[in-house]
């Protein structure tokens, strides 16, 4: 290996690390607020890229249909589950928000898809379709389990991942796609060529991390999320609607997942099941940071990205083995650092 290759690998590592950082931060956020280990995060990455790909091809992405179905299911189930607390006004809100709006969107996409309105529109449509899915999934799968142990929520998250994985296959098929870059150009930086898309990724990641920081530090909603993360009961007592913060956290996670997918779509071929491994690497970063610290997560993500790109060079076949085997010593260390508290009690 010479310096050029090392630089090239480092560039790769930084780009991957940036994406893992975004995902890791979202995972920490969701875990802190809802105690859910959000495994399906990876599906949003894949769907972000593949929805753009479908729109580029002038077709209606399956995610548009899914949003409508999820909305309908969430509204129906909520009416049944909370039939004692239902009022006409509540039902009306749900009908408009969860049923009418998604179906209107679906109609719009069907009408506009063949017109090929350009990348900016595709990105916008993708976000509008995917972001509301976060809260809908929270309402369908996790809200009824809000008081369950972390372990139960985790198994449920795996269940959701399993379902979404199959749905991804239905919507996008087994074929992989590589999207058009935002700007198709490269420029020299020292001895190597840097793709514009790579710069995009790093810039957007930094902007998003800064925006998240401002959101948590400067806005009331962000502070409410932080308060819920510290103590759910306490947050409820001071009047923070805990359910709403859960939905908010899932919306943010879905948004971050979708943005990550849109960003990496032009750099690598994405398949319906690519998201899981990408998401898991965000996880490795989040866990190194103890599922608690945002800056540490970002730093750990960079480390994971580097480790991945360098092990891809030295032992490409064993890249995944190396990255995921790293998790075990980290878990052991984390487990002992967390101390011996009796958190396994249930039944």
């Amino acid at each position: 290996m010479n310096a050029t290759i090392a630089l090239f690998l480092a560039q790769d590592g930084i780009i991957n690390g940036a994406i893992y950082a975004l995902l890791g931060v979202a995972l920490v956020l969701v875990f802190a607020v809802t105690r859910v280990i959000f495994v399906p995060q990876g599906e949003f990455v894949a769907w972000g890229a593949l929805t753009v790909a479908a729109l580029e091809a002038g077709t209606v992405p399956g995610t548009a249909w899914l949003l409508a179905v999820l909305g309908l299911a969430a509204a129906l189930l909520e009416v049944v589950r909370e039939r004692h607390a239902m009022s006409v006004a509540k039902v009306a809100v749900m009908v408009v928000r969860d049923v009418a709006l998604p179906f209107a969107l679906l109609g719009l996409v069907i009408w506009a898809a063949p017109m090929r309105l350009g990348l900016a529109v595709y990105v916008l449509v993708t976000l509008v379709l995917l972001v509301p899915m976060g809260p809908l999934i929270y309402r369908l799968a996790f809200q009824p389990l809000a008081d369950a142990p972390v372990l139960v929520l985790f198994i449920a998250a795996i269940g959701v991942h399993f379902s979404l994985l199959g749905l991804g296959l239905v919507f996008f098929g087994a074929e992989g796609f590589r999207n058009t870059p935002f700007l198709d150009m490269s420029f020299p930086l020292g001895p190597m060529m840097v793709k514009a898309q790579s710069v995009w990724i790093v810039v957007v990641t930094l902007l998003l991390l800064a925006a998240l920081y401002a959101f948590f530090e400067r806005t009331l909603l962000g502070k409410a999320l932080r308060a819920t993360a510290v103590n759910r009961l306490g947050a409820r007592l001071v009047g923070i609607p805990v359910r709403a913060t859960g939905r908010m956290a899932f919306a943010l996670a879905a948004a971050i997942g979708a943005v990550s997918g849109i960003l990496i779509g032009p750099l690598t071929t994405i398949y319906y099941d690519s998201g899981f491994l990408i998401g898991l690497k965000g996880f490795v970063a989040a866990i190194i940071a103890g599922l608690a610290s945002y800056p540490l997560t970002a730093l750990a993500a960079l480390l994971v990205g580097m480790l991945e790109s360098f092990s891809a060079f030295f032992a490409s076949a064993f890249k995944e083995v190396i990255v995921f085997s790293l998790l075990i010593p980290v878990l052991v260390w984390r487990s002992f650092a967390a101390g011996h508290h009796d958190d396994e009690e249930e039944e």
């Binding site: 280990i37 491994l277 995944e320 995921f324 487990s335």
Partner: peptide, 20 residues
């Protein structure tokens, strides 16, 4: 190595070696 992991760290560990 793994059974001493507490709470949700254990299943995460099993995912890691499952993939590995």
């Amino acid at each position: 190595v793994t059974v001493k992991l507490s709470g949700h760290y254990l299943p995460l560990g099993t995912i890691a070696w499952g993939i590995s």
